[in-house]
Design a protein around this nucleic acid. Sequence first.
DNA 1: GTGAAAGCGCTAACAT
DNA 2: ATGTTAGCGCTTTCAC
Lengths: 358, 358
Amino acid sequence: MTTTKDIAARLDLSVSTVGRALADDHRISAETKFRVHQVAEELGYVANRAARMMRGARSTVIGLVVPDVSNSFYSTVAHALAETMSSHDHQVMLCESGDSRQNELRQVRDLAAAQVAGVVIVPTAKPHHDVSRLLRSTPHVQLLRKVSALSPHWFGIDDHNVIHVATRHLVGLGHRRIAYIGGTVDIPTAAARLAGFHDAIAAAGLRPDVGIAELGSPSSAAHGADTLRRLFRERRPPTALVTGSVQITRGVLAALHEDGVTVPRDLSVVGFGDEPGFAWWGPGLTTISLPMHELAIACGVWLLHHIDHQTQETAQAPFTSVSSGTLVERGSTGPPPAAPASRATVRSRPVRQPVRQR
Amino acid sequence: MTTTKDIAARLDLSVSTVGRALADDHRISAETKFRVHQVAEELGYVANRAARMMRGARSTVIGLVVPDVSNSFYSTVAHALAETMSSHDHQVMLCESGDSRQNELRQVRDLAAAQVAGVVIVPTAKPHHDVSRLLRSTPHVQLLRKVSALSPHWFGIDDHNVIHVATRHLVGLGHRRIAYIGGTVDIPTAAARLAGFHDAIAAAGLRPDVGIAELGSPSSAAHGADTLRRLFRERRPPTALVTGSVQITRGVLAALHEDGVTVPRDLSVVGFGDEPGFAWWGPGLTTISLPMHELAIACGVWLLHHIDHQTQETAQAPFTSVSSGTLVERGSTGPPPAAPASRATVRSRPVRQPVRQR
DNA sequence: GTGAAAGCGCTAACAT
DNA sequence: ATGTTAGCGCTTTCAC
């Protein structure tokens, strides 16, 4: 590794002159600057960030803590943030919590050790106390989920409203037995979504068929598929369904496809998120589209601004930004059957038998 | 930020004793160690990585350079790598090149400045010379794509074979006018895929209808859709299609869906990659499934091993690992029409008119 | 078993 | 316009 010392030795200058030349200090002659840059280029000099940080320079690394980047929801976030940070000369450290407090703590500890400039975090249900403590001294903002143990700064979506709208849509179509499959209510967003469902159902004077995740179980595709099949095995299955997470939606769509359920005849479905493929699922999935890309960008630029301006002693007022989703109406929702719903053919042990389109 | 100095002052010890206690040095008494750890815990001490690195400690950060993490191909890679690195006490710095040499250079420069322990890179077509230079002094491995300017170590898939198998499948079904839509041949993987197609076509004695990307154009969904529509506008449109990237596959699927083309009656399709949703697209997409998760893990653990053992003066033999894909047969491929293909209804300005499934 | 001091690469205050 | 010096937080001699 080439250092300023090497360059100095090569030109018979002092390290400080080299440092200043590289920093384009006004006191250095144009000629010296030129020669320094030339040698630096030749030797492939790259300034050592570690040394710079020792001298008090702030890191240009932003930590991103998400449950799982392979979830397209979060990969969109990672992409948007990486782009935003890159265009502001910052880098993104990718950390996965796997929705485990222990992992989350390890990741945050690593970020603290790296003295990162800031952190964007989608927290787990109950972050470890040390996570709060470690983040206390680091500018950070919560994304999507919001827990009270961390900073009050938050960028998220109106979870309650989003599910409320989805449910109202089904009520408006005439459905009276509407089910909801969501994730564990440990997680605040999931709780808000469930509340949105309940409120919409209550406002319509209906009885909800709710299939939420068992406490502690993650919001997975398997859970979506299993719960759907359980709902269908009941005496009076629902005629409509609202899903409360992308993964659950995925599982439900796969199960409906595998089991040959005809949508919207046998069941109306409103999905969560608008992932690639949702548009071409069966008759097209009616779903809630969420502005994840824009949300992540807004969150990123806010954090950068916050980092630059919080040094002032001004009391930082809690900042929250709520974005809303949009109901995208496609073919998966329609009026309920006029006659008592004819039981759809749903097997608990599904046989692979794709529905041929013609 | 708490430092060893703070702890030392608190216990009236020297910084060296504190440092040793924290490092569990054998010369320090059990009691002192205990007290030091206690105070460290109380003060929320986190060792400063920058300072450690100044003392020669190697970084525990691995750079990951991909074109775009929102591409589920690469988000799978990012996830697998983050997991692997996390379980080996390493972190992942996420860098997006956007398939631009300039961005790639900036990102690699940042990684070099951060003195990262290693780099996993999906290189652009022609990386800047400085990228080679910068990476020369950093253990790195190429993933998927392979360019000669970088290290010979590479983990990828057998691109030629994968497309060869896909094409043979269609030939075997009796197709004689088979098209291929791939990305720009600037990128070695894309070139290999195209060659795989050509070889399979030549072996069958057929005339290929090839729709590759224009040079320099990225392998995008839009390109897939546009090229598909162009192919269909020709006098004798193909009866079968092979796609050469996930994005192109996505675009093709969307266009076929929007334009109401009946698959496999009007066109047989073999996709690339097995993304969520491909299974339920129309009659189920026949496609090449690729072991991206496993590939990324293998790549990650190899890099870690390489980092730990390259210090030995042993000449490092070039290491390459080729994984193969699997043809997943679903409903989107079938025999060609016996009679001259009835022109499918494809509009250049498609009207949204989803194909209703019944 | 513990302390003092040096030094990693860089920058900034203080000389010339 | 350039050189000298000190010090960031940590580890690691070398001393006691």
